[in-house]
Amino acid sequence: MLTLYAHRGSRLTLGVAGLAALALLLLQPSAPGVAASQVLSPDAIQARYAGRAPVLPETGELAVFPGPAGEPAGDCAALAGGRTMVALVFGQSNASNTVDPGYDSRQPVYAFFGGSCQKAHDALPGATGAKGSSWPRLGDRVVSSGLYDTVIFADIARGGSSILNWGPGGTLNPLLLNTLDDLIAQGLPPTHILFHQGEADCALGLDAPDYRAMLEAVVSQIRQRVGEENDIIVARASLYLDPVCSEHSDPACYRSCPTLTAAQTEVANPARRIFSGPNTDLLVPWFDRNDGYHFTAKAADRFAAAWMPLLARGDSPVSAAQ
């Protein structure tokens, strides 16, 4: 099994180490007697990949940025309701704190963690990594556009995580469901669910039908928790640096899995408010990744901009007000 860990001096490379170790698992065969094209239940998928899914620390190295001296913790209740966007973010390292650091939100953009809402700074609490995040950049764009007056991000992304971790029976599934419950209890039911993940499963060699089935099971769990009155946006992602080659300045060292990004696309169902998000295999090429895996500040800006057309849909608060 794969164990991902990081001490203070190396925590910034959590996603790199995780993907490198995942690639070694490609040598392990699938469970015998199971056809790759057969649609399996989440339990059967977990059993099929038993011993191959990433084993992650219970909490990872969670970033907690205290903010400037004297900055008070935000009152979540005061931010609830009205024109407030509440986005639950989950996935792996590029949805966490691995961007080139140094960005502070300029608009009313907050991070939800531990029942409180603090001004969004690098790094966002609740997700792994200790560098920067793409999400405050998106929050500033949302507020500046007039789409919402306030944005709250609850980011629980974990570096190196697989859809097997997030799906039913996975180690991170309780975190996902409990965070949804916490947001609802605080009067902050999510208006949006943003998911960015797939690089780990490309390295792992997860079959596309299994990936799609597990992702659809996650979406069903979310819908059972929060209903149909929010948008679920599934980004497309699979590109990673092959650790066998490992030279991040050589484009030939990068691998992607078009079958996985196709599976992510196929989960979309606009009638149920499930949409395809940015395809970062195309949006963030190899030369815009600061270590071969993670986004540069320039790429994070482009990533944030790519979400805007998806958020500014016809039934947005701005359109409804007009």
Results as ranks from 00 to 15, higher is better:
121 H>G: 10
148 Y>R: 09
117 C>N: 10
132 G>Q: 04
151 V>Y: 02
138 L>R: 09
120 A>P: 06
149 D>P: 02
147 L>W: 02
128 T>E: 15
152 I>M: 05
132 G>A: 11
129 G>H: 00
137 R>M: 15
120 A>W: 00
156 I>W: 00
125 P>R: 00
123 A>Y: 15
126 G>L: 00
133 S>A: 13
120 A>C: 04
140 D>V: 14
126 G>P: 00
121 H>D: 08
152 I>N: 08
141 R>K: 12
140 D>H: 05
136 P>R: 09
146 G>N: 07
129 G>I: 01
143 V>C: 06
120 A>L: 09
149 D>V: 01
134 S>M: 15
142 V>C: 12
140 D>P: 06
138 L>T: 01
138 L>N: 05
140 D>R: 04
131 K>S: 15
146 G>D: 03
130 A>L: 12
118 Q>K: 15
157 A>P: 07
137 R>Q: 13
152 I>Q: 04
129 G>F: 01
135 W>S: 11
156 I>R: 00
149 D>Q: 14
131 K>P: 08
119 K>G: 14
139 G>E: 00
130 A>S: 14
153 F>D: 03
135 W>V: 05
124 L>A: 09
152 I>V: 09
154 A>I: 01
131 K>Q: 15
117 C>Y: 01
144 S>E: 12
126 G>W: 00
139 G>F: 09
145 S>K: 04
142 V>Y: 10
121 H>A: 08
134 S>A: 13
124 L>D: 02
118 Q>F: 10
149 D>K: 05
135 W>R: 12
119 K>C: 08
153 F>R: 05
141 R>V: 01
139 G>M: 10
143 V>N: 06
125 P>A: 13
119 K>S: 12
157 A>M: 05
134 S>R: 15
147 L>M: 05
144 S>R: 14
128 T>S: 12
145 S>C: 02
119 K>P: 13
117 C>I: 08
134 S>H: 14
128 T>D: 11
129 G>A: 12
144 S>P: 11
133 S>Y: 14
137 R>I: 12
154 A>M: 04
119 K>I: 14
156 I>H: 00
119 K>A: 15
129 G>L: 04
133 S>T: 11
150 T>G: 07
124 L>N: 08
137 R>V: 11
156 I>T: 03
148 Y>L: 04
151 V>C: 02
154 A>T: 04
146 G>Y: 01
121 H>Y: 15
135 W>P: 10
117 C>E: 03
149 D>C: 03
143 V>E: 10
121 H>V: 10
130 A>W: 14
128 T>A: 06
132 G>T: 12
128 T>Y: 02
151 V>G: 03
147 L>F: 06
126 G>S: 10
139 G>C: 12
122 D>M: 13
127 A>P: 01
151 V>K: 06
138 L>K: 00
130 A>M: 14
128 T>K: 08
153 F>G: 08
148 Y>A: 11
149 D>E: 13
139 G>H: 02
144 S>Q: 14
131 K>R: 14
123 A>T: 13
145 S>I: 01
155 D>K: 03
124 L>H: 11
152 I>W: 07
147 L>S: 05
118 Q>E: 13
122 D>L: 07
121 H>C: 09
122 D>V: 03
149 D>I: 02
154 A>P: 03
129 G>T: 08
144 S>D: 08
127 A>M: 06
128 T>M: 13
143 V>M: 10
141 R>Y: 08
